[in-house]
Amino acid sequence: MLFLDAIDWILDPEHWREVNFGPGIGEELVAHLWLTLLSVLAVAVVALPVGLYIGHTGRGRGVAVVLANVVRAVPTLGLLALLFIALPLGLGPAVFVFLLLGVPPLLAGAYAGLESVDRQTIDAARAMGFTEWQVLLRVELPLAAPLILGGLRSTVLQVIASVTLISNFGLNSLGDFILGGLASQDYPQVVAGSLLVTALALLVDGLLALVERAAAPRGVSRGDGRTTARSRRVRTAPTGAPIAEGN
């Protein structure tokens, strides 16, 4: 069975060192993650400031939505091919392509996250004497953290999946196994490559889900009627009886 053959292929220690005289699973995995990391960092550098600016000020939202949709419509493979013809082979152009691909989800997460924060809470913070930076860092960011991290998760997932394509252009990634397998009609290897990419994506996504959970602000309802406060929820709270203070 192809699937079991693929599992066997992955479990073969030999394949972790070397596959068809090329890099083994270990090396391809590291290359795949490295390119992913670089791309996601590049995305964060671009999308976070822009998204937070839009969310905080409410300005430029229309432009951002249109741009994000245009970028989304660009075919990744075509763009990669174009850039690799035009530019010397290297990590730079690859990161640039994945940057374009990865920006929309995080950008949307960032501004949607800030927009989801209750206007009255922000207004109150300002009236208390928070500076604009303090409003952003101490009120908006903590409350928007789950949505921003949700955007980050989508971005990471997109990039991990798309980095597979880079193997078409001579850079290392787990896509090498798929392409190599197709070329040599070694289908267990093709499936093994796909499984590795899928497993990697799920694993990273799972880890980020844990981070997202941990970052959820305590005291704020998750929508299921409970709050995330660690303290025991008390149903009836003692209303302050007027206390006598020397009068």
């Binding site: 809470t121 109150a124 913070a125 005291g219 704020v220």
Partner: peptide
């Protein structure tokens, strides 16, 4: 400053 609906920060005690 005291406002309607308190305007408290929901993520702080």
């Amino acid at each position: 400053y005291v406002m309607q609906n308190s305007g408290l920060l929901p993520h702080r005690t």
